[in-house]
Amino acid sequence: MTQLFADNAAQLAGAVGRLLGWPPDWFWRSTPAEIAAILASPGGEPATVTRDQIAQLMKDNPDG
């Protein structure tokens, strides 16, 4: 496993934990398809994020 993959996987695990309230073992036992299905919008349309939502996320989660 490369360091880049490990870093990205850890970051995704943290995001799923915050967004879905999952403990780490739920993330590691899930498949990418399961996570995608859970995060998909109910109408089947691709989920979108607005600039305002990104700005709020950045405000709520500052880097250092």
Rank of each mutant, 00 (worst) to 15 (best):
Q11D: 09
G44A: 11
R29Q: 15
L4C: 00
A40H: 05
I38N: 09
S41T: 02
P32C: 03
P24I: 09
V16D: 00
A33I: 07
D60K: 05
D7S: 13
R18W: 03
N61Q: 11
P32T: 00
A55R: 07
A10S: 14
W28I: 10
R51A: 14
I35A: 10
A33K: 14
W28R: 11
R29N: 13
I35C: 14
G21K: 03
P32K: 02
S30N: 12
P23Y: 04
P24L: 11
Q56T: 12
L4Y: 00
S30A: 12
L19F: 10
G14S: 07
G17C: 06
G14E: 10
T50C: 01
Q3M: 10
F27Y: 15
D52P: 00
A10H: 04
A47K: 02
Q3N: 07
N61S: 07
A13E: 15
G14P: 03
L57D: 06
A10K: 03
P23T: 08
D7K: 12
D60L: 14
R29P: 01
V16F: 07
G14L: 06
D7M: 08
N61L: 12
A37D: 11
D63C: 05
W22R: 06
I54V: 15
D63M: 11
P42F: 12
A13K: 13
L57G: 15
W22N: 01
P46Y: 01
L57R: 09
D60H: 03
E34M: 14
D60Y: 07
Q3S: 07
A55T: 06
N61D: 13
E45P: 04
D63L: 10
P24Y: 04
L19V: 13
A37V: 00
A15S: 05
Q11Y: 09
F5Y: 13
F5P: 00
D25H: 15
N61V: 07
Q53E: 15
R51H: 10
K59M: 13
L4N: 08
G21A: 06
D25T: 08
A47M: 04
G17W: 08
